[in-house]
Design a binder for these strands. Structure first.
Lengths: 217, 217
DNA sequence: CATAGATTCTATAGCAGTATAGAGCAAGCC
DNA sequence: GGCTTGCTCTATACTGCTATAGAATCTATG
């Protein structure tokens, strides 16, 4: 049944992958800039200096290309987040590391992540749901750590964990959309400031310079 | 030269505006759901139960429709923000009110705001720049209040005002993208929690239940 | 009813974009 | 050299979409 392949396979041994990645990389770049529906396969081909039709040797449809880009856009996120959750440390410390881990890929794989965040909604149901599971895994990690903080008293009682999680992730994910125009900010610095903001807020109250005074409710 | 109008004018006396608004409202709805480039004029017409070509009586191009939607998407934002800035009150209190004012339209004009946030980048340069001015005005309001807080010592010294502003707005704007799936949360409650989070952070340190202990660095 | 203005309709030009078919070409191996 | 495999090309079918032209309908008013 799968004897005759209707189309050449991407996956071969070693070198061929190179090219395939260049293709997907170009797609990511253009999708990120113009959005999925705003991108023509011609535009992707232009970036690569090849013919529009040649792209179809690498993916079976534009949608498939989007899926490939989105998939790479989530690579490592879940694993990194779950590693932090399983690690040792106080909840607020873990939260800081979650934020850093979440922002890191934004630095190194801007286009992929941007496409994942902004364009995944245009995927067909099947693949969108698959990616949805990843998103939810990340959300769960953040929410879990926040709940742990509430449980051990290091996070304010009465905090709506889910809402706080959405706030933190919203803040982090937004970075992808201003990063291009606001260059020059080091991502590590951003992560640090965000973590501090989330932990202590902006108010110049007690624990300003670093007061780690943990005190149960 | 402009003697013969190439196309009927939208603006008349009173009733006609009604219909025009229904059209724009439908456009907002579909743009919000499928994105600008993912929306065909046919899809907008379907919502209205009219023919695709009839839409062009109300706008001259799909782009013009997007612009109209985006414009309405910013209505009130700038004014509300600047009113808060000019009002009396401590910076952190103003910031809380800024957040509330910023979230309110998300409640009442979801589609418009969502389109403004997610699709304005597809506008032609001219109109995008015009909207960019509004965006920057809002950013300025937030940043200004934060700076005021730093200046009077109510906000932590050394805070990167611009980064903090981007964090807060990122957090707020993200709401538009999960609000649909996460119904049931009252917007006022969200605003209150966000304000508290931004002011005091999640950490259960000193000023938990309401300790207003202001202390300069 | 006739006229005017406003609104919607039918029909269609014309272009852009996705995807397929199949030829050509380069490299490596027999 | 001849065969195979991998990659790219040309050419094109086909669809869907934007926008225009102009006829038809509806509404109000004299």
């Amino acid at each position: 049944m799968t004897t005759h392949v209707p189309r050449a396979r991407l996956v071969r041994n070693s070198k061929p992958l190179r090219r395939a990645e260049e293709i997907i990389d170009a797609a990511a770049r253009v999708f990120a800039e113009r959005g999925y529906h705003g991108t023509s396969t011609q535009a992707i081909a232009d970036v690569l200096g090849m013919r529009q039709a040649s792209l179809y040797y690498y993916f079976t449809s534009k949608e498939a290309a989007l899926e490939a880009v989105c998939l790479r856009g989530t690579d490592g996120f879940v694993e990194a987040a779950e590693a932090v959750v399983k690690s040792k440390g106080a909840p607020l410390d873990k939260l800081a590391r979650l934020i850093a881990a979440h922002l890191a890929p934004i630095e190194t794989r801007q286009d992929y992540v941007k496409v994942f965040i902004n364009e995944r909604r245009y995927l067909p149901d099947a693949s969108r749901r698959r990616l949805g599971r990843k998103t939810r895994a990340i959300e769960r990690s953040f929410e879990h750590v926040i709940r742990a903080g509430i449980a051990d008293g290091s996070i304010v009682r009465g905090t709506d964990a889910r809402l706080a999680m959405l706030a933190v992730l919203g803040m982090c994910n937004a970075v992808i959309n201003w990063r291009a125009s606001d260059q020059g900010k080091d991502m590590g610095r951003i992560a640090a400031q965000f973590a501090k903001l989330i932990a202590n807020g902006l108010a110049a109250n007690a624990g300003d310079a670093g007061g780690q005074g943990r005190r149960h409710a």
